[in-house]
Design a binder for these strands. Structure first.
Lengths: 226, 226
DNA sequence: CGTGTTATTGAAGTGTATCAAATTGCGTGG
DNA sequence: CCACGCAATTTGATACACTTCAATAACACG
């Protein structure tokens, strides 16, 4: 694996502000000692379906997506993680093998935290565990919401929702139609046609691959059924 | 609220075998002291969307479903809980109001555990917390799997999956077509037609509302795409 | 400057929701 | 215990949003 470790201190890490793991200064101090920083180039695979989790990965900088490959060759994006996001925790805590692939969308630095050290932290810092549980439960909420949206909302509504979400959480990112489709649960063609429609209505502007939202309330209303 | 409390000991509770909460004898002892047993009749509402979580509910006996009502009047079943299942944890730990309704499908006994006592348990028993996290992460896995299935699988495949799941997890239960539909993410009509098809193929037998699986491998193969 | 990927547009096919109506089943109260 | 009425089941017809397939054009990248 092309993993290059680097000495990087948690003291200077900005991502910890948004991380469910780095809840208190004390915990950060421990993590600082046990973590291993790994760097990935865009497109590189961090872990793969079927492998055994040995720890988890905290995004320091960059962007990571978790996706599943269904048997018919289609990929679906479960979660997208920016700085502060944690990858690999679900399988680790469920005591299963990975169910999804983790892929670096852009050049990314991760902090790898071995599971034994992690469990020690949790054993000694109950508040940290509770804090992490909050994050997991929010993810669960998002997942269940997504399932419901898949049925109740039309493709165009999910796409409107998607571009708002992607814009808000990961600023100035140029997503491909395919990536938007895999997140919104539809096809690149449908994304294409929907965006063209939005543009025609003056809701957005497409400068090449970049999507500029001209009328935010308009897009928001297009993201809700009824 | 028509809640009738009853003195019931955790010692004699069989549900604790399957509960993520009652992990160790010590924890059970504490829970035994702080819990309040509540009884609900079939159809009764345990909690509702928008309310504030004050604790969580462990199913002692009976059956509970968690469902969301989308704006267009459709209901979707997120999770179904038998004995040992925990209701209300997601919103509690996410520190949000309830996003779903919890409804007793059949006559049900629940153990209500107030949140302050719960957090105390978690603070003093890290293993219990980890154990609970495993359960949450499995739920997250199921939720994400369900979203993917909603796209990749045809309605008939999801229905095949549904009757297997419902059969395996909640034995000898007579589900309505509507309930199956709300779990499988489709409509009662489609469930109807699919079950008729399965019956015609000799895969199942419908004795009124009860579904008997005649050819289990056959149904399993019908539940997987390709 | 090729070459593979992404974008774009068109046409065609279809699974499934939706609507409607008839029938059965079942709980409830008289 | 029967009759009533509401809920669930069943079947048919219709509609349509979206996927799928295909083919060209525009990029990006080494």
């Amino acid at each position: 694996m092309s993993i290059s470790a680097k000495k990087d201190s948690c003291l200077t890490c900005e991502a910890k502000q948004h991380s469910a793991l780095c809840s208190s200064p004390e915990v950060v101090r421990v993590i600082d000692k046990v973590k291993v920083v790994c760097n990935y180039k865009a497109g590189q695979i961090i872990f793969q379906q079927g492998q055994d989790p040995l720890g988890l990965f905290a995004v320091q900088s960059g962007l990571v997506k978790l996706e599943v490959n269904s048997m018919d060759g289609h990929a679906h994006t479960l979660r997208i993680l920016g700085p502060g996001g944690i990858a690999g925790y679900r399988s680790l805590f469920a005591r299963e093998t990975y169910k999804a692939n983790a892929i670096a969308i852009e050049d990314t630095s991760l902090c790898y935290i071995p599971k034994t050290e992690l469990f020690q932290i949790f054993a000694q810092h109950p508040e940290a565990t509770l804090n992490f549980m909050q994050s997991i439960c929010k993810d669960l909420g998002s997942a269940e919401e997504k399932w419901v949206a898949q049925m109740d909302k039309e493709a165009s509504e999910r796409i409107a929702e998607a571009i708002l979400f992607l814009q808000d959480h990961f600023n100035d990112q140029k997503w491909t139609r395919k990536e938007i489709a895999q997140w919104a649960g539809t096809t690149p063609e449908t994304v294409m046609r929907t965006l063209a429609q939005f543009e025609k209505e003056g809701l957005i502007d497409q400068a090449g691959r970049k999507i500029i939202i001209l009328n935010r309330p308009g897009i928001q209303s297009r993201s809700t059924h009824l």
